[in-house]
Amino acid sequence: MAPVDALIADGGKYLVTFDNWHSMGYGPNVVAIYDGHGQLIRALALSDIVSADYIVALEHSVSSIRWRGEPHFAPTGLLVIPIVVPDAQDDGKEETYLDAVLRLSDGSVISGSSPDWQRAEATAQSMARQKRDYEKQAKQAFIAPLLGPNENTERNWHDYLTEAFYRSSPNWKDASTSTTVLRDPSAPNYAASEGWLRDALLSLDYEHGTMSFASIAPFDFFVARMKAILADAKSGQLKGSKVYVAAPTSALPLLQSIFAKTGAKVFVFDPNSPIPQRPDRLKRYLSRE
């Protein structure tokens, strides 16, 4: 299609192309070696260079795999491709590479058996198992009825609010929701979260649209803070907005009374009431496998 990179050997004896535009790491010709007359010597998929587990362990984006550095020719008729070494620690340190070595005359891969490669492969196998386990758990969670988080953490509540919206909102295909989580008042970084809560409810700098809220703090404290913030709201300030709150169903009348003057429509996601997955969303999810 359209190679991302290409190398031409001195004298034009070989031409090598790498990857395809917007799909690095995918396809049967991540490396293609041609002779000086333009005849294909060999095309290689990434799986011809590293193992399937190694590929799984590499960093993936929506369309590409981050698998290599800048390739170069060696003076002995060889092609050297720096391959990203998967890092099980994922601590943000700089990438490291191992050299994959290919013979230009026939495209044979002649690297991969050194102790460094064996260590990289062992790390990749471990990372691949972890990724597959995570994906299995994510699939089970996507299929199963949704309940509130098992652990009362900020990240879990953000994830719960987002998924609950897509399972519950009538306009889930065309809309999205902001998510705001109030931290525990004893936490040293609590104040910032109350600021986010105030901004979400009272800011006039953006269209409010759909907003979802949850709290790590006890529910009574959460309600008291929302009530205090909304005391500063103007009449009709949130008209046209939809507000979802992670709260018991029995709390809906109270929440509706708190938001009454704002004009917002209020709903609850009851963490103790399972929310089934949408059949059409599940069908679309399973069709991508």
Results as ranks from 00 to 15, higher is better:
R42G: 02
L201N: 01
A231I: 01
K234Y: 10
P276V: 02
A191P: 03
F269M: 03
F165M: 00
L15N: 01
N189L: 11
A231E: 11
N171Q: 07
V245H: 05
L230W: 02
Y34L: 07
S250C: 00
Y244W: 14
V268E: 04
P82Y: 09
G92Y: 14
R281H: 13
L40C: 10
P218C: 09
K139N: 12
A144H: 01
N150D: 13
A231Q: 10
E121A: 09
Q39S: 15
A200D: 10
L44F: 02
P149Q: 04
D35M: 02
P218T: 04
E163W: 02
M1D: 08
L254C: 01
R119F: 11
A264K: 01
P28F: 01
R183T: 05
N171F: 12
V223K: 14
D53N: 13
I110E: 08
V30K: 05
D10V: 04
T153M: 08
T153S: 15
L15A: 08
K283F: 14
K283N: 15
G112C: 09
E59H: 11
I49R: 01
Q89V: 12
R42M: 00
G195Q: 13
R42C: 00
A2G: 04
L161I: 10
Y54P: 00
A233L: 05
G148S: 00
R167Y: 03
R198G: 02
A138K: 14
A264L: 01
E135P: 06
L202W: 03
K261Y: 00
Y54N: 04
F219L: 12
H158I: 03
D220F: 07
Y206A: 15
A192F: 15
A231L: 09
T96A: 12
E289W: 10
L282H: 10
V85S: 05
D270K: 04
L282V: 12
G107S: 10
G38D: 07
L254E: 03
L230G: 02
R155T: 14
F222L: 10
R68C: 06
P279Y: 08
Y26H: 15
P145Q: 07
V30F: 09
M211H: 04
R68G: 03
I33T: 00
K136S: 15
V181K: 05
L197C: 09
R119S: 13
D35F: 09
F213R: 00
P274Y: 07
D5Q: 14
D232H: 12
T262Y: 06
L7R: 05
R42P: 00
T76P: 08
Q140A: 15
R284P: 07
F259E: 00
T249G: 08
P75I: 14
S51W: 02
A175G: 04
P75Y: 15
R288E: 13
E59N: 13
A32F: 06
A217C: 11
K239M: 11
D99I: 08
P82G: 12
